[in-house]
């Protein structure tokens, strides 16, 4: 097992180097001069030149890449061109907020998704099943940002139950958290409902379920203890794999709800063309994505002894 984890970690190194290289190339290709972004169009030529030398912008591209690599590995993501705030420090503040939102979203969507999926599977082909699956597909087809706006309009602006935006005071403010979490989790809940239904249908057609029923076990026990327990491994994997993907949705959700996290930080940087921040966000986003997926893979192997790690 430890060998498996070590090998996976070693395999990640070339991939992460590739990710860094790609991020560097993209930011290198960006049109316009970063120094002009920092100093403005009317800056003095001498100062511009001094700044260019300081930032090594006149070096050949490969030297720039190696110095970028060197800095990034040491955790230095540079300074914002506009606010001059250290990107690493800013991200350290923002990422826990995104993590909080993602965790709330995954909890809400997992509970809803699994519950709806089980009900659909148990009442297969009934009107309830058809309704649940149609609604699920409708949610999968709805843009996250638009759904968030509908929720804001209904619950914040019309009914006045929740605040329109922000994170509120304190570390945990349910009123502020509920709408963004529902928005971010909506598509995943729908996807999970469909997935749980298909896994449960497979499981409840197995022989051991028939045996349990033949023994006279109560139906609710058959479904929850015998059925769900065996369906849980693939479901847990899908939940884990999607936790990292919530970073995608967080960019849109945080924009709508002015949630002070990673996604909003990135979108604000895009609007201001603050490339140092964009590069830092893209790199950290990929890093989180890779490591969360690795952890999920390892948990998966630990949970299911049938999967070999050779």
């Amino acid at each position: 097992m430890i060998q498996y984890i070590l090998r996976r970690l070693l395999l990640i190194i070339p991939v992460l180097l590739g990710v860094l290289f790609l991020t560097f190339v993209l930011m290198y290709l960006v049109p316009g001069d970063p120094v002009l972004t920092m100093l403005g169009q009317h800056a003095d030529d001498d100062i511009i030149q001094r700044m260019r030398t300081e930032l090594h912008l006149d070096d050949p591209w490969y030297q720039q890449f190696f110095s970028y690599l060197n800095r990034t590995i040491r955790g230095d993501l540079g300074r914002s061109y506009i606010s001059h705030v250290d990107v690493t420090t800013a991200l350290k503040q923002k990422i826990p907020n995104t993590f909080k939102l993602a965790l709330a979203a995954i909890i809400v969507s997992t509970i809803m998704g699994i519950a709806i999926g089980i009900i659909s599977a148990v009442y297969k082909n009934s009107w309830l099943d058809h309704l649940a699956m149609t609604v699920a597909l409708l949610f999968i087809s709805t843009p996250v940002f638009w759904f968030g706006m509908l929720l804001i309009y209904l619950f914040s602006m019309t009914l006045g139950w929740t605040p329109v935006s922000g994170m509120g005071e304190g570390s945990f403010n349910l009123k502020h958290l509920i709408l963004p979490a529902l928005t971010l989790g909506s598509r995943f809940a729908a996807f999970l409902a469909r997935y749980t239904r298909s896994v449960m249908l497979e499981v409840i057609s197995e022989d051991y379920i028939r045996t349990a029923r033949a023994k006279g076990v109560k139906e609710s026990l058959v479904i929850l203890k015998h059925g769900l327990r065996n369906a849980l491994i693939p479901i847990v994997t899908v939940v884990g794999m999607n936790f990292a993907s919530l970073l995608n949705g967080s960019v849109l959700t945080e924009t709508i709800f002015a949630w002070p996290g990673f996604g909003r930080y990135l979108v604000t940087a895009i609007k201001k063309r603050d490339f140092q921040v964009i590069a830092g966000c893209v790199w950290i986003g990929a890093l989180i994505f890779v490591f969360v997926n690795l952890i999920v893979d390892i948990i998966y192997v630990m949970l299911d002894p049938r999967i070999s790690y050779d």
Binding site: V15, G18, V19, L26, L266, I278
Partner: peptide, 24 residues
């Protein structure tokens, strides 16, 4: 396949955003 791995190591929207920023 290593190239595929690298591209798939990014959350897709994030990489798309990075490319859009580079291209305009």
């Amino acid at each position: 396949m290593r190239l595929v791995d690298i591209v798939m190591s990014f959350p897709s929207l994030l990489l798309t955003i990075a490319i859009m920023v580079a291209l305009g």
